[in-house]
Computed example of a mutant assay.
Amino acid sequence: MKVHILDDWFDTLRGLPCFNLLNEHDVTVWTDHEADENALAARLADADCVVLFRERTLVTHSLLERLPNLRLISQRGAWPHVDVGACTDRGVLLCSNKGADGANYAAAELTFALILSAMRQLPQQMASIKTGGWQMGVGRTLRGRRLGLYGYGRIGRAVADYARAFGMEVIWWSSDAGRARAIADGKQLAESRTAFFAESDVVSLHMRLTPETSGIVTAQDLALMRPRSLLVNTSRAGLIEPGALLSSLDAGRPGMAAVDVFDSEPLMDPTDPLLAHPNLIATPHIGFVTEDEFDKQFADIFEQVTAYANGHPIHMVNPLVFGQ
């Protein structure tokens, strides 16, 4: 099959062990992001299969109409960026291992790195010494402080392990089903949603972005946070009500934010009001960007390609398409 891989910005995948899974296919790797749909359609004109790199590219009805040869889209995780109905209408099978086993430890590690960076003022302290200064302020110790984790999933549980190793108290909030699982596992829940935001020194978000979770953290939630508290988001920007994080930082509740995700990505405007905010530290969506995590995730994706080529597709999202 002619397989096109999109948005591998650093040309990483060719050097990973999992890339050998595509040895029997004609593979084209695109190392830039093409935002123009007409240009993207021209690139993919001969593609039998498109491999998506997370949510970096939208797959729309109009794009699919321009790809007459396309039969398979292979990716991993949730698919809010893919028009599944249009895929079905066009006879394109979407395969995605949404329920992959194991936590994304890379994302969990980055989450805790951001907590440490914010609480110890690491970006500011580093900038100070590199520009001829010395200490620029006084950080805060994590031991004895309360970490609130919103979303009872694998990544959140890994972050909780790190936090307990640092002597933090961990409390949880989640959906009704998530809270039930946490209780069954003997975890400590906040007394209420209000208490969760109001009484945590650090709040970290760990949920998938779905129609049900879009905007689930509101401006009212953030206004409950303490003036010296920290909000961390390494999940998806859309979990927070549009505009709420910027307005809340302007109001001083929470006092700081550390984020790896933005509403529009890639965000490359240094004057963006949120990115430029003095009380925000940021990374460019690198929670999953390690060689180890890439090899694990793309092994799943490439196995879906080979399974389809062998006539036995796996992880089908719209299985009625297969066999048309």
Rank of each mutant, 00 (worst) to 15 (best):
A244H: 07
G167P: 03
M1N: 11
F19W: 14
P227L: 08
I314V: 14
F196R: 05
Q297K: 13
F298P: 12
L44V: 11
L245V: 07
V170T: 06
P313W: 06
E37P: 00
D272R: 07
L267K: 11
F262K: 12
A160R: 08
A107S: 12
N310D: 14
I286V: 15
R154V: 02
W30D: 06
D201K: 03
A127Q: 14
T210H: 03
R71E: 06
F166G: 00
L205R: 07
F294V: 06
G102Q: 06
R71N: 01
H4M: 13
G133Y: 14
G215C: 10
S174D: 14
A127S: 13
H4Q: 13
F19R: 10
S175Y: 10
L22C: 10
R179H: 06
K2L: 12
L58F: 07
L224F: 04
T271V: 10
G167V: 03
M256Y: 15
G186S: 08
A177Q: 13
K98W: 05
R226T: 11
H33D: 03
T28M: 04
V289G: 00
L122I: 15
R154W: 02
G133N: 11
G323C: 02
L22H: 12
E109A: 02
G215K: 10
P68M: 06
Q124W: 14
T60Q: 04
M126H: 13
P242I: 05
L21M: 12
H285D: 00
L246V: 02
V29M: 05
D250N: 15
D32T: 14
S264Y: 12
M207E: 08
L280N: 07
N23D: 15
S117T: 03
E303K: 12
S74D: 01
D272I: 07
D269H: 00
D32N: 13
L114K: 04
I73M: 02
P270V: 11
F302I: 09
N310K: 12
V27L: 04
R140W: 00
Q324F: 03
V159K: 10
A219M: 00
A307G: 07
E293F: 10
Y152D: 02
I5A: 08
A177N: 09
P211F: 04
P17I: 11
L110Q: 07
V305M: 07
G323T: 01
Y162S: 02
I240V: 15
S128G: 09
I301L: 09
